[in-house]
Amino acid sequence: MLSLKVSDIINENPLFKTYVFKHGLNARPGQFVMVWMPGVDEVPMSVGWVEADEFRIGIFKAGDCTTAIHEQVKIGDRLGIRGPFGKGFDLKDYKKITLAGGGCGTPPLLALAQKAAEKGMDVTAIIGARSKNLLIYEKEFKKLGCKVLVSTDDGSKGHKGFITDILKKELEKGKTDAVYTCGPEKMMVKVIEIAQDHKIPSQASLERFMKCGFGICGQCCIDGTGLRVCKDGPVFDGEVAMKHKEFGKYARSASGKRCDL
């Protein structure tokens, strides 16, 4: 367990903050860390940006732990960090890739875009949110040279509707070697289906309740294959993700009992 000082906090929007740590984490895009808020809980978070001596994680205010982090952690405070864990995205030797990020699922795709840009790949980032003020990392994707396409559920910015509408049109144009997605699971199911319709490979980053983070406790094992999201994932090939019969349908609570997504 590392205990790292938060060196900066960027308020992206009322529900989303980026936490900056001056520490060389050596994480690959799509990998995650367990973030410990002492006295509250420890939760898995995707690494959203990696440099030689710095990494960032984007935290969406959702449950008890992330709310406590949002409300209590200030610059200079420490958070516990375990990791990086899991299998990240694989960029292979693709030339042109398309990213499909929904809401708080966007950060690992930013880390991926960062790596893809380094490799000189052509990146289209389709990012969506419920509303304009909840959209994240548009500027950052643009700065990396990505073509950015935006959708909002309420139409306050970009296409009114879902990122899957944009993805369909983009893939019809052709020229994409692979699709990468992270976001609400039902959205990811659609993204993979659209990619499959166009015979394009896809990779999806999944999330489940985690405890150990390194593949021994069994808490995040997923029905259909029994694979561990923390170790065999969190990134799965689209075909493998679709073999998981719970994918897009249910998850499990802390006790291991099935629950809604």
Binding site: I216, G218, G226, R252
Partner: peptide
């Protein structure tokens, strides 16, 4: 206590 939360996970160990 290891990988024993679900039946699919137990079967994956046998695999």
């Amino acid at each position: 206590g290891y990988l024993g939360v679900t039946g699919a996970s137990l079967a994956n160990c046998v695999k």
